[in-house]
Design a protein around this nucleic acid. Structure first.
Lengths: 343, 343
DNA sequence: CTGAAAGCGCTTACAG
DNA sequence: CTGAAAGCGCTTACAG
């Protein structure tokens, strides 16, 4: 069919040099004092025949790919899917494309994917990583690769980051439950030891300490089969009949938790008040609607992309690090509100 | 830091030619009768210094990128997010990477993204497209580009495809409702005129016709703001008080529909039975649990990737087209089961 | 078995 | 203002 058209073809047709065409196409016509008239002729013809420069060749030459590597825990997780969709839209609007990958919290997989990103010469990285990649990310930072961590930090690495203040979010959620008169507030959290989980736990712990309430924390092993997690949660609730409120530290724990409570026939909030981190359709439409600590996804996506682009455009300032912390919002719904006695 | 190491460096160090190193690395040592011992020396050293060939240069030379372009309607839609996650995993296992993009059902955006995929020289395409891209996709097919459509077909294009038999799915769902004794079964569907929607509608229509029931179809405009869709749905249900069962043709319609019904205070299934296309956590955990027509996502992802890889590896067989149709599964839950009168 | 060389399609100093 | 040429880092016929 349509023969692939090259820069050489268009130069030949217009009887100018390849350099002229390239310069015009890259907006250096003025700088190189190419006449407006010639520049216009080039642009017109390029447009007419629909010439598109080969990006591979361009990238090989310039070292830029205009591709951003985005690594999330699991693209099927609504939190990450939503952030990814927002980032994609914003990146596209600024001329960047996204390659995304899910780590499933597996450090070995994350390591491979990071290598893959490097092999593909991505211009920048947006990363929500499992623990254990400090060395790899540290190396990227030292080589001045534009990079932003999000959702969770790596303990041993100083890098650009956009995170949500989970400590405050959980502190407020816990306070809210205690203010409603719930006595035994449990926290269900993963045992992955990631920084965002540590912060959420710490917020809970602080609120409990301030009210002189004993902590009740269930660290569930993750990842494992959903059925198993539901089982584990049922066992936990069965073992703690006096527990009258529970906080789930992330969205899928909330989902599995609701399933476990349903299986046990526990009434929410009469028998057990519930709050989950992260908001989504399920929590909003559940009966009763579930109180959540909602993360500001739009702001997060915007800050991620603009921080990364600033690093990309920046003059390779070694050492300038931007760390942003966004505030989540407690959205109170029926699942955490005390039912008047005898009502 | 670490200087980027090139094939030239390793050839020089081992005192062999660049060609030898390249041949060994590309598994052509045997073919070119390079001694096993030399081949081993090369591999060992490459491994030792961690040399990674520049993929950009390699791609420019070979014309292969080992990248697959995946285009979905919206990556934040759980159906597409789940399929994308499965495809990514399977592709990675076979040495391919995914670039994904969301079209948001905008033909202009889809057209741009298709151009972008071509500029990036993706090796193959997996596409769930809005209508109106027949010409563009037709051109790809004619140029023998490996490509698989999914979820919906383009009316004017013959291409590889993996779709779900939505007609049968909806037919069974409608029959089920009628068998339960519901009388006025409505269908809520988008007005986008896409093939998957047409099939689902046709399945509903056939079941209604067979039982001599009049159709009641609400074509909602899409895309628009969620709040507006909920409003529209409330107005629809308010205008049809005699309607005692409803089918939602896709997952987000189901979600908005549940929200509308909740706002109206309609009891499910007493006042209105509900079935939605697509399964997810929300439908499974809703009170009452929602009956769904579940798509076989795992099988779909597997068929998509293997069909595409077959086309990629194939001997450029012009004209060989594979079209697979998978069977969805009706999962009956409480939302569509008649409550015994007086129970 | 191995080396020198062309070429993938661009960009950009360097001369004029 | 414009052209000839080098070079980005590979792969692979083609000779030996």
């Amino acid at each position: 069919m349509k023969k692939k058209i090259l820069i050489h073809d268009i130069a030949q047709h217009l009887d100018v040099s390849i350099a002229t065409v390239s310069l015009v196409l890259n907006g250096k016509a003025k700088e190189k004092r190419i006449s407006d008239e010639l520049a216009r002729r080039v642009l017109t013809y390029v447009d007419e025949v629909g010439y598109k420069p080969n990006q591979l060749a361009k990238s090989l030459r310039t070292g830029k790919t205009h591709v951003i590597g985005l690594m999330v825990e699991d693209i099927a997780n609504p939190f990450f899917a939503t952030v990814a969709a927002l980032i994609e839209k914003k990146a596209l609007a600024r001329g960047y494309r996204i390659i995304y990958c899910s780590t499933n919290n597996d450090p070995a997989k994350a390591r491979d994917l990071l290598t893959m990103f490097q092999e593909r010469h991505v211009d920048g990285y947006i990363l929500a990583l499992p623990n254990g990649l400090d060395a790899e990310v540290g190396a990227l930072v030292r080589r001045d690769k534009p990079l932003v961590l999000f959702d969770r930090l790596l303990p041993g690495v100083s890098a650009n980051a956009v995170v949500v203040d989970g400590a405050t979010g959980m502190y407020q959620a816990t306070q809210h439950l205690l203010a409603q008169g719930f006595r035994q507030v449990a926290l269900v959290i993963t045992q992955l030891g990631q920084t965002q989980m540590a912060a959420r736990r710490q917020g809970y712990a602080q609120a409990m300490r301030e009210q002189r309430r004993p902590e009740l924390v269930y660290e569930i092993s993750f990842p494992q089969e959903p059925e198993q997690m539901v089982q584990d949660l049922q066992a936990f609730f069965a073992a703690h009949p006096a527990c009258d409120a529970v906080l789930f530290a992330t969205n899928y724990l909330g989902v599995y938790g609701l399933e476990a409570l349903r299986n046990l026939g526990r009434r929410i909030p009469d028998e057990l008040a519930v709050i989950s981190f992260d908001d989504n359709d399920l929590f909003r439409l559940y009966s009763p609607p579930i109180t959540v600590v909602a993360q500001p996804m739009e702001a997060m996506a915007e800050d991620l992309i603009s921080t990364l682009l600033a690093a990309l455009d920046g003059p390779g300032d070694t050492g300038r690090i931007v760390q942003l912390q966004l505030t989540p919002q407690l959205v109170v719904r029926a699942s955490s509100v005390r039912v008047p006695v005898g009502a």
